[in-house]
Design a protein around this nucleic acid. Sequence first.
DNA 1: CACAACTAAGTTGTTCACAACTCAATGGCG
DNA 2: CGCCATTGAGTTGTGAACAACTTAGTTGTG
Lengths: 162, 162
Amino acid sequence: MTTAPSASPDLSAVPDAELLRLDHQVCFSLHAASRAFGGYYRRALKDLGLTYSQYLVMLVLWEQGPQSVKAIGERLHLDSGTLSPLLKRLESAGLVRRERSREDERSVVIDLTDEGAELRERALSVPRGVLAATGLSLEEVLGLQEILGRLTGALGEAVDAG
Amino acid sequence: MTTAPSASPDLSAVPDAELLRLDHQVCFSLHAASRAFGGYYRRALKDLGLTYSQYLVMLVLWEQGPQSVKAIGERLHLDSGTLSPLLKRLESAGLVRRERSREDERSVVIDLTDEGAELRERALSVPRGVLAATGLSLEEVLGLQEILGRLTGALGEAVDAG
DNA sequence: CACAACTAAGTTGTTCACAACTCAATGGCG
DNA sequence: CGCCATTGAGTTGTGAACAACTTAGTTGTG
């Protein structure tokens, strides 16, 4: 399907125009996969009343318990500009509490309400459906994760260095 | 790092709670990788005056020439709700023209302006930097693309069937 | 031909991502 | 102690993604 043979990893030998086409495909694959994932979750999480991003935050809270906005942000690579309004929405939905920390008045600790904690039971059935829907084997999923992790790390470093 | 051994693809043997944790990791990997990609491009495309999504649309136009909003949408899996305002911004930037089709007055044909076509020359240098920044070999990139393609296809079908 | 079903693009409203910023609390350092 | 750089959260503004909807044009069928 792609024009390039799989033999040489020598990028410098590949002409610009070819790379532009390949770039298109890679960008697009990742972008599309990410959105397809989001689309699946949107449906699966609909009756839990959660968006995909809210689900990610809830996963962090279910696994790690009460923690600051900053800690959640580090875990998910999100900043306060994204998290603050999202957490407010989770608070309005009655799933989390937001409280100023006593030790450090700058930081806000996010904690699950009873309702938020109970929601985990209903969320337990979601991942099995998703993993089945991907059509990937467990090995492929783990392999994908490993590559994506390296990709994210390398790109992050490149941006920091740039 | 993950608890599961790589031997068995038998998902039904894995407990729910374990899957929830794995799900967290997979969701997160994909989400994070997609955003890391976006972050890199944001910088790389800054002096071209393009966003990541606008770049994807321009790639389609550079490769395939004038085409309808619908055709671009099919190529990028985007609907008119996303594309209409984006294309208006590209039009204001002087990169594309929007014209009602003569044959079918419902459809709008997007065409590059001279300025839009010339921008391709400046974009040619971008992908090499990105591919280098990923730290992946050409083989890994192609492999990743293949898996992501299958993933997107399978998830799309699951949503349609759902 | 007439009317219903469909299709393409655009609009509206919600949520998310992120840069750039404000504001208050903290921590150093002279 | 007093001042200032830093830090954590929040706000503002822009762009993107998408559901649900509108509007206008097209097609099929009786």
